[in-house]
């Protein structure tokens, strides 16, 4: 415990715990995608998950809102434990916003309808109120003028910002980002990252799976390195980029930096 920038494991969150994973395993057939994952995320904390492809980082965050079902262990989000109970799952999904690599905007709805849909259908907000909220969120990601367009008419960067606004409109306690910039052309990455930085600075609790090391360095409270379904190393960005301990971490960082 001499070096305060390294953590023994991923359970040392700062402040009140919002997400907790205890001994979580996940299999796809015979393939073990997650192996004994223990992790905590504190309120207003930004955790960046990095690792080679196939290391289980996407699976990890997809288990948190039950897009994938974990096989063993416990996942607790804001005091609610994920179980087979559909109402529990719905409640957790309401508290967690997710942004996908491929945006997944609804192509048959306008930008405004994309954002107001869930607040109206799930939170039961009246139309006018939902639209006002949507415009606030669009302003936050700096594209309020695109409200009436269809997703297909926007650039990739704009679409991803709409996706962020759509998740935010549900006023979630946690935001999950699954490689949000990996499908973007290079010149559009910055506008999305800027929106995410702004969000982090606003105090949003975030788990971000990404290859953007610049983002990790700038905003992450902790960086989690995963490989082969395991959490290999946890530390501050400073630790990771100056003095990684594990060989697998060093190899990975040498390949992408």
């Amino acid at each position: 415990m001499t070096d305060m920038r390294v953590f023994a494991d991923a359970t040392q969150a700062k402040g009140e715990t919002v997400i907790e994973l205890v001994e979580v395993d996940k299999y796809f057939g015979d393939f073990q995608a997650l192996a004994n994952i223990n992790m905590r995320v504190g309120r207003q904390e930004v955790v960046v998950v990095i690792g080679p492809s196939g290391s289980g980082k996407s699976t990890l965050i997809r288990c948190i809102n039950r897009l994938e079902k974990h096989d063993r262990g416990r996942i607790i989000v804001d005091g609610i434990e994920l179980s087979e109970d559909v109402r529990n799952i719905q409640e957790i999904r309401r508290e967690t916003g997710m942004v996908f690599q491929s945006f997944n905007l609804f192509p048959h709805l306008t930008v405004l309808e994309n954002i107001t849909l869930a607040p109206r259908e799930v939170r039961r907000l009246p139309k006018a109120e939902a639209e006002e909220l949507a415009m606030q969120m669009l302003t936050r990601v700096k594209i309020p003028e695109q409200a009436r367009k269809y997703p297909g008419q926007l650039s990739g960067g704009q679409q991803q910002r709409v996706a962020i606004a759509r998740a935010l409109a549900m006023q979630p306690k946690v935001m999950l980002f699954d490689e949000p910039t990996s499908a973007l052309d290079p010149e559009m990455i910055k506008e999305v990252l800027d929106a995410m930085v702004e969000l982090a600075e606003g105090g949003m609790t975030m788990i971000v799976v990404t290859h953007e090391m610049g983002f990790a360095r700038a905003v992450a409270d902790r960086v989690v390195f995963m490989s082969d379904g395991e959490i290999v190393e946890v530390g501050t960005p400073e630790h990771f980029f100056t003095d990684p301990r594990e060989d697998r971490t060093k190899l990975f960082l040498s390949q992408i930096l």
Partner: peptide, 17 residues
């Protein structure tokens, strides 16, 4: 695309919705 269903689920929408 299945991503459409996932996006909707992630927003907390019920299956029939």
């Amino acid at each position: 695309h299945h991503g459409q269903v996932e996006a909707s689920q992630a927003l907390g929408m019920a299956p029939w919705k």
